[in-house]
Design a protein around this nucleic acid. Structure first.
Length: 103
DNA sequence: CCTGGGGCAGCCG
DNA sequence: ACGGCTGCCCCAG
């Protein structure tokens, strides 16, 4: 696994239940604001979906975004964790978690 | 809502 | 190593 990917996964694993983050936030936290799409790719190749909650990463406009096992599943998981979704969008203002700056 | 352009890590030939 | 292409994106229009 690449350095980039492990940094992404590490940050994602810090997002608590009931909260989310976005691809862009991750990119910013990595100190690489333009890598949002690459971040998505890194998550798509998540080696262990069970312990790495990549379903807690949504788009910066609140829309659910892609997911290896389908957007339905992703939304379902978020709902089960207490994240509110309305019209296919997460209320980022309430559920966004702040990430630590990683290097 | 839909587009086009920007952007970049990873994969493949 | 090198160029092309793809994709859990973003933003302005």
């Amino acid at each position: 696994m690449s350095e980039f990917q492990s940094r992404v996964l590490k940050l994602v694993s810090m997002v608590p239940r009931g909260k989310v983050t976005t691809y862009k936030e991750l990119a910013l936290a990595l100190g690489r604001p333009r890598t949002c799409r690459a971040v998505g790719n890194a998550l798509a190749r998540n080696p262990n979906p069970v312990i790495i909650p990549c379903h807690r990463v949504v788009r910066s406009d609140g829309k659910i975004g892609g997911y290896k096992f389908g957007e339905r599943k992703k939304a379902k998981l978020l709902l089960m964790e207490g994240v509110m979704i309305k019209n296919g969008k997460v209320y980022l203002q309430n559920f966004l978690t702040k990430l630590p700056k990683s290097r």
